[in-house]
Amino acid sequence: HIECVVCGDKSSGKHYGQFTCEGCKSFFKRSVRRNLTYTCRANRNCPIDQHHRNQCQYCRLKKCLKVGMRREAVQRG
């Protein structure tokens, strides 16, 4: 199976330009649609994997963008 490029979980297909799991797909869509801004409580390099992906939204969104998920691919409302 193909892994989610963000957290390594099982990918459910290509979403917003990259293969991601449902969790990262939904997180990215929600973040972009609502134009959410997050803050990192650590050093902005938190581990984002299957077990830690919900611990830091700032670093999760940063990783989504770093691996090539595209904001412009998210349809507005």
Rank of each mutant, 00 (worst) to 15 (best):
T39M: 07
G23T: 11
F28K: 04
N45R: 13
R71D: 11
I2F: 00
E72L: 05
S26G: 15
T39D: 14
Y38P: 13
G68M: 02
C7G: 02
K63P: 02
L36Y: 03
H51P: 07
R44G: 14
S31P: 00
K62Q: 11
L61K: 01
L61P: 02
K10G: 08
G68T: 02
L61G: 02
Q57D: 12
S26Y: 04
N35M: 08
S26T: 14
D9T: 10
F19G: 03
H1P: 06
I48P: 01
A42P: 00
K14W: 04
I48Y: 03
G77I: 10
Y38V: 05
C4T: 02
I48R: 04
F27D: 01
A73F: 12
S31T: 10
C7Q: 00
Q57W: 14
C59L: 00
G23F: 12
R53Q: 14
H15G: 08
F27C: 00
Q55R: 09
F28T: 00
K62E: 15
I48E: 06
R33K: 10
E3S: 09
F28I: 04
F19P: 14
P47R: 06
V6W: 03
A42M: 07
L61D: 01
G68E: 03
S12A: 10
Q57C: 08
R41A: 15
F27Q: 01
K66C: 06
M69I: 03
H15S: 06
L61M: 13
K14N: 12
I2C: 06
H15W: 15
C7T: 00
S11Q: 11
R70A: 12
V67A: 08
P47L: 07
V5R: 15
K66H: 08
V5A: 15
G13D: 12
Q55F: 13
L65M: 09
I2G: 00
K14G: 05
K25L: 10
R30V: 13
C40K: 04
R71F: 11
S31F: 14
Q50R: 08
K10L: 05
M69K: 00
N43Q: 12
N43V: 14
C46T: 02
C40R: 00
R70S: 14
N35Y: 03
V32N: 06
R70P: 07
C56F: 03
S12I: 10
V32F: 09
G77T: 11
C40M: 02
D9Y: 04
R53G: 12
R44W: 09
H52A: 12
T20Y: 07
N54H: 08
G77Q: 15
P47V: 11
C46S: 02
R41W: 14
G13E: 13
R41I: 14
I48K: 02
Q55T: 08
Q57K: 04
K14Y: 09
E72T: 05
S31A: 12
T39F: 15
Q55A: 10
Y38H: 00
E72Q: 05
L61T: 01
V6D: 01
V6K: 00
Q75E: 14
V74N: 09
A73S: 10
C4E: 00
V67D: 04
K14H: 15
H52S: 08
E72G: 05
C56K: 00
R70W: 07
H1E: 11
C4K: 01
V32D: 05
V5W: 11
R71K: 14
L61I: 07
Q55M: 07
I48F: 08
I48N: 07
C4H: 00
F27E: 03
Q75S: 10
S11D: 05
K25S: 13
R30A: 08
M69F: 03
V74P: 07
T37H: 14
Q50F: 05
D9Q: 14
L65C: 05
E72D: 11
H51R: 07
D9P: 01
K62S: 11
T39I: 10
R30L: 06
C59A: 02
H52Q: 13
R70Q: 14
Y38K: 01
C40W: 02
S11F: 13
H52T: 09
G13K: 09
S26W: 11
V67K: 07
H1L: 12
Y16T: 05
I48M: 07
K25G: 13
C21Q: 04
L61C: 02
T37C: 10
V32C: 01
R53A: 12
C24M: 00
P47S: 07
C46V: 04
N54L: 10
R60W: 14
Q55G: 11
C4F: 00
V67Q: 12
V6C: 06
N43F: 06
F19V: 05
V5L: 15
Q55D: 14
N45D: 10
R33G: 10
R41C: 12
I48T: 08
K10Y: 12
R60T: 11
Q57T: 08
A73Y: 09
K14Q: 15
K29V: 11
G17K: 04
H1Y: 15
Y38N: 01
Q75W: 08
P47M: 05
V32Y: 09
C7H: 00
N54F: 06
G8V: 01
L65R: 03
N45S: 13
P47T: 07
G8R: 11
V5Y: 15
G77N: 10
G77R: 09
G17V: 04
C59P: 03
N35P: 04
N43I: 04
E22C: 07
Q18V: 15
R76Q: 13
C4N: 00
E22D: 10
Q55I: 11
Q18I: 09
S31L: 03
G13V: 05
K10W: 06
P47W: 06
K10F: 10
Y58L: 04
L65P: 01
V5N: 14
Q57L: 06
I48C: 05
K63R: 08
R76P: 06
N35C: 15
C46M: 02
V67H: 07
C46E: 06
K63T: 04
Q55V: 11
V74E: 11
G77S: 13
C40I: 03
K14S: 15
R71V: 10
C64A: 06
T20S: 13
G17M: 02
S11K: 11
A73V: 09
A42H: 09
F27K: 00
G13C: 00
F28D: 00
R70M: 15
Q57M: 08
K14D: 15
N43G: 12
K63F: 04
G68V: 02
E22I: 03
R44V: 05
G23Y: 14
C40V: 01
Q75M: 08
C46A: 03
S12P: 08
R76F: 13
R76V: 11
H52R: 07
C21E: 00
T37R: 13
R53I: 07
